[in-house]
Design a binder for these strands. Structure first.
Length: 590
RNA sequence: GCGCCCUUAGCUCAGCGGAUAGAGCAGCCGCCUUCUAAGCGGCAGGUCGCAGGUUCGAUUCCUGCAGGGCGCGCCA
């Protein structure tokens, strides 16, 4: 249970019993942990928020409410403080009951219902299928995947989706590059400088060329009058080359994602959407609403593009929905812009039942957010909401020295190389040690360091230590006494040390953390929370070094030991639960 | 020129409209015959970029300004 919403219900009920003026807005009544733990276990601002509309003095109202709250059995003290806060202290027994709850519920502890089973679509990665993924893609992949798991834990029905950009000029350029590799594989005398369309020069297309040769032999090429192999006209090879190249690239990308433990439910094809006529239909909807017109845009002020010329374009009135300028839907050759396809795609998501959508993009797409949100609002009449999470840049370092990234110089660092080097767990955790909209420095040397400087190892170590105690306990006691059910009925009232109770309080905050992180779409909060839990646990552990009576395993005190094992087990449960949400494997030993 | 993001301790960063703003690192002082010292305790360190506004209350919301990053009509 989220104990804060539990007590909020109690506070609201007591307020209603106070015969205050009718029609008071209670929505701003908050029940939260006090910022300073010395103030108590739970604080509410109810009196301060309601005093004015109720025509009362905040502290007077607080006293009346506090008087009623003191009668709650779990409440040992209700003090009015500062401008009108009410600070509640809860009985140790209440916390012991939370501990038992954690053990009974196990890994599902923290599961919330705020999602109410509503469908939410999280679209992430969506990297162009033109080559291996880089580190920036990896950040978005981890964020999206962790957010999806978090929303699922919070009670949403989550679909993890990848928008496959398999239409447009880039994949055609990709096909040309693959075709070049194909001709090379056939032994054609052809060099890169004479092949202007050879844009994607990475080695990863060499096997694609080989595969095309194996499948098609020389059928996609022809021999000139002199018997030498040359290319055929575009329309005689484009489709098969493009399709098999995209398939090969997606296999590559999916393999990279699999390394990170990421698997999408749906791969939506841009080409399929365009070819199905969905774009025309979506734009007809907008047109019917008078949101499409042909007009001319002002040139950007300040820095005028070299080849600027005024020309009329088909535009979407995104300015009616908060965008800065109206946005083009058609290219000059009459084909749709990427934006037009994306409009149809988001309408498609809405039609599939998603009123809540999250897109995870790189920061370089920041200028695209307003128009996409404008389109979603326009298409759905405001029924659907699109949240866009922008991931700022990841900069690679090694021992503090920047790792230069240059495709041309061949020092392009792929996601695969990084994950091979540091491992899935380290990569995923580190990607969540910053808010998504904060730039992130990733230092190879630092993230594999095994010290408290490295939050991944710090948290893993806490879990491993907890498991180690439980293993040790299993050597001397019957297995039946160590099951979660058995530990839940241990004499938990024996846990009275302030450090033990502080740890239980923090563990009991997990359900609230899940809810607030899910509401804010901020999975990084889990990584920070786990560090706090780990710190409290390591601290408690070391108190046992200073004072042997505080150790978890005591030869002469079986009842107390049992209670402490329950606490250790709860730490393992919550840490494992949190790590699982962010996709990091809890370590059994280190 | 315009838009978006960022600005919190020497450094790297958390911080949900709430009270005396928190971690880690670096610095200083301590803790290992015994559950993992890959750890822990303590000390010191702040005009929350600047200026206004809203509010009982602003690091948090709004406006303006400054500095940094990203982007800016037929690329995706």
């Amino acid at each position: 249970m989220n104990l804060f919403s539990h007590f909020r219900d109690i506070v609201v009920a007591e307020l209603q019993a106070l015969d205050l003026p009718a029609g008071l807005d209670l929505s701003r009544v908050a029940v939260e942990p006090p910022r300073d733990p010395a103030h108590g276990d739970i604080a509410t601002n109810a009196a301060m928020v309601l005093a004015k509309p109720a025509g009362l003095q905040p502290r007077a109202l607080a006293e009346r409410l506090a008087e009623r709250l003191r009668r709650q059995s779990a409440v040992t003290a209700a003090e009015v403080a500062g401008p009108g806060f009410i600070n509640l202290r809860l009985a140790d027994g209440f916390w012991h009951a939370r501990l038992a709850e954690i053990l009974r519920i196990g890994p599902a502890y923290g599961d919330a219902r705020i999602g109410g089973g509503r469908k939410v679509n999280v679209e992430y990665v969506s990297a162009n299928p033109t080559g291996p993924m880089h580190v920036g893609h990896g950040r978005g992949a981890v964020l999206g995947d962790a957010l999806a798991a978090l929303l699922a834990k919070a009670g949403y029905e989550v679909t993890r989706e990848y928008y496959l950009n398999d239409a447009g000029a880039q994949v055609e350029a990709l096909a040309w590059s693959a075709y070049f590799r194909y001709l090379q594989a056939l032994g054609a005398e052809i060099d890169e400088t004479s092949f202007a369309a050879f844009q994607y020069q990475g080695d990863y297309l060499v096997p694609v060329g080989e595969a095309l040769k194996a499948t098609y032999g020389e059928h996609l090429a022809e021999r000139g009058a002199d018997g030498r192999l040359v290319g055929k006209p575009l329309d005689e090879w484009l489709q098969p080359v493009r399709d098999s190249t995209i398939a090969a690239m997606m296999a590559l990308i999916r393999a990279d994602l699999a390394m990170l433990g990421i698997e999408h439910d749906v791969f939506a094809s841009e080409r399929a959407i365009v070819e199905s006529g969905a774009v025309d239909r979506a734009l007809q909807t907008l047109d019917a609403a008078g949101l499409i017109y042909v007009g001319t845009l002002e040139p950007p002020k300040g820095k005028l593009p070299e080849d600027w010329e005024e020309r009329p374009q088909t535009l979407f009135r995104s300015t009616q929905f908060g965008d800065d300028v109206d946005r083009p839907l058609k290219k000059s050759d009459g084909s749709w812009t990427y934006f037009a396809g994306d409009i149809a795609y988001h309408l498609d998501k809405y039609r599939r039942g998603f009123n809540e959508m999250v897109d995870v993009w790189g920061a370089d797409h920041g200028g695209y957010v307003k128009r996409m949100q404008a389109a979603v609002t326009a298409l759905t009449g405001g029924a659907a909401r699109l949240d866009v999470k922008l991931c700022q840049l990841v900069s690679l370092f090694d021992k503090g020295v920047p790792v230069r990234m240059s495709k041309r110089a061949g020092t392009f660092v792929t996601l695969r190389e990084v994950v091979d080097e540091v491992g899935k767990d380290v990569f995923r955790f580190v990607m969540l040690t910053r808010r998504n909209d904060q730039a992130l420095d990733f230092d190879f040397a630092k993230v594999v360091e095994q010290s408290k400087d490295n939050p991944v190892f710090y948290v893993q170590y806490a879990h491993a230590r907890a498991r180690s105690v439980l293993r040790r306990a299993a050597e001397t006691r019957p297995a039946a006494t160590l099951t979660p059910e058995s530990l839940a009925s241990a004499p938990l009232a024996r846990l009275t040390d302030p450090a033990e109770l502080a740890l239980i309080r923090h563990l009991a905050g997990w359900p609230r953390l899940v809810e607030s992180a899910a509401e804010a779409h901020e999975p990084h909060r889990i990584a920070f929370y786990l560090q706090e839990v780990a710190a409290l646990f390591h601290g408690l552990w070391n108190k046992g070094n200073d004072d042997a009576s505080l150790r978890f395993l005591l030869d002469n005190a079986p009842a107390l030991t049992e209670a402490r094992l329950a606490l250790v087990q709860a730490v393992a449960v919550v840490v494992a639960s949190g790590l699982t949400v962010i996709g990091v494997t809890p370590a059994e030993e280190m």
